[in-house]
């Protein structure tokens, strides 16, 4: 199906990210996402799973001379009004909570806020169905 799309036509991408914010594959995912939009393509959803949830973590502190990837993702998703979803089960397991979950589980720290939404794996499947291509970064 996707293979018959003409070169130069607009593609709808779903992007899944599985690696932590300090992994090279996470930087590549952001570069790909930026290039996709710059090329006039559409990103139907970004889905962060497994260690990928750390890319949405606002409490990451990056040394000044290094790239602050969580901050770059936040700006990219906000500026382009993208749908950024963080898997709630993977996030809870790794202590990456928003205010609502922090209250629910009586934890003192929330580290995910807008533009990110915590949601379930159904959002990944929904994005796969909606997109022409699923592009994965940082898998095993």
């Amino acid at each position: 199906m996707a293979a018959v799309l003409l070169i130069g036509s607009v593609m709808k991408f779903a992007i899944a990210l599985f690696s932590a914010a300090h992994a090279p594959s996470s930087r590549r995912a952001l570069l790909f996402a930026q290039a996709a939009l710059a090329g006039g393509h559409e990103i139907v959803r970004l889905f962060f799973y497994q260690d990928g949830v750390y890319n949405a973590c606002a409490s990451v502190v990056t040394p000044q001379d290094e790239q602050d990837l969580p901050q770059q993702w936040r700006a990219f998703v906000s500026d382009n009004r993208l749908d950024g979803v963080v898997c709630i089960a993977a996030a809870l397991r790794r202590g990456v909570l928003n205010e609502e979950e922090a209250q629910r589980y009586q934890r003192s720290a929330a580290s995910v806020e807008a533009p990110w939404a915590l949601s379930g794996l159904g959002q990944l499947h929904d994005a796969i169905q909606d997109a022409d291509r699923l592009i994965c970064f940082g898998g095993a």
Partner: peptide
């Protein structure tokens, strides 16, 4: 097999 599927995730 891989060729038969529309999308692939490797984890």
């Amino acid at each position: 097999l891989i060729d038969r599927y529309d999308q692939v995730i490797t984890l």
